[in-house]
């Protein structure tokens, strides 16, 4: 049968194209323009070439912040993903426990970032916070404003508290979609719990698990509000992540040129990682 090709439907895409151009492409072009120039305000710009990129790529400040950022994302993924799977596997499958668990698990997700930051900022204080005061009463030297390890621990535990539910809920949805027949077959074959997890549950969860990893990676890689409220990037620069450093540079120091180059490099890192995740996910879908 000969179909008539009609590409008029492409015009339907036009509103989205305009919207994305207005909200993302044009601002991004402006950032590119800023990245090759220097300004002292007054909308006057001076050509700087690629020197800002050279400076940022060789700046210890950027490389350290990037290292801290990858370390943070790595640590929270290494905790939240296994913990989320573990919680999802132990959540009730039916009965009154299901809605109770679902509501309790969703609660942390509903709290805005700055509120989470404030809660933990107070919670960890040695003078008035429950956690800080309890630690002090137990004789443990805990102070997130002065000790680097304590600051990192506080931020990591805060992130785990805030976001593990997301991983758990996604995995729970994946687990619920496995038909009972799979488990019955495994039982007949005398499969161990580990074999059931490895060959039935994990493959069936793989799709949602990748989404969970992607979401948690993206979110933790651009984290700003929570560590900013709790530690303000300190002690020193111990918890200054990329976004905190970028804001300091762009708004604190008003170094628009270097900050623009910084954001473009930041953007390219995120683009690269997202592309890798996206490619892996879509190819797994095609194969699976």
């Amino acid at each position: 049968m000969n179909k008539t090709w009609n590409n008029k439907a492409w015009w339907m895409v036009l509103p989205v194209v305009l919207l994305v151009a207005f909200s993302a492409v044009i601002p991004l072009m402006t950032v590119v323009n800023y990245a090759v120039q220097d300004t002292f305000g007054n909308n006057q710009f001076f050509w700087a070439g690629l020197s800002w990129f050279e400076e940022i790529m060789n700046s210890e400040r950027f490389i350290n912040a990037l290292g801290r950022q990858f370390m943070f994302s790595g640590i929270i993924l290494a905790i939240e993903i296994p913990l989320g799977i573990f919680i999802a596997m132990n959540m009730p499958k039916k009965g009154w426990g299901v809605p109770v668990c679902l509501v309790l698990m969703s609660l942390p997700l509903l709290i805005p970032w700055n509120v989470v930051g404030t809660i933990w900022q107070i919670f960890g204080r040695v003078d008035i916070g429950l956690l800080g005061a309890s630690m002090a009463a137990l004789g443990i030297d805990y102070n997130y404003t002065q000790n680097i390890v304590d600051a990192w621990l506080t931020i990591i535990v805060m992130d785990v508290w805030h976001w593990t539910s997301l991983v758990a809920l996604l995995c729970y949805a994946g687990l619920q979609s496995i038909p009972e027949a799979y488990y019955q077959a495994a039982k007949i074959d005398g499969a161990s719990n580990w074999a059931i997890f490895r060959y039935i549950q994990l493959p069936k969860m793989a799709g949602v698990l990748l989404i969970a990893v992607l979401l948690r990676f993206m979110d933790s890689f651009m984290i700003y509000t929570e560590p900013f409220v709790v530690t303000g990037g300190g002690p020193g620069t111990a918890t200054t992540f990329l976004s905190i450093d970028l804001v300091n540079m762009a708004i604190g120091q008003f170094d628009l040129g270097p900050a623009a180059a910084f954001s473009l490099i930041y953007f390219l890192i995120i683009l690269l990682v997202s592309w890798i995740f996206y490619t892996v996910m879509t190819n797994m879908d095609k194969e699976g």
């Binding site: 044009i26 072009m29 402006t30 590119v32 323009n33 800023y34 090759v36 120039q37 300004t39 909308n43 710009f45 050509w47």
Partner: peptide, 8 residues
């Protein structure tokens, strides 16, 4: 406001 240069 976009601070164009001919190179970009």
């Amino acid at each position: 406001w976009m601070a164009w240069t001919w190179q970009t």
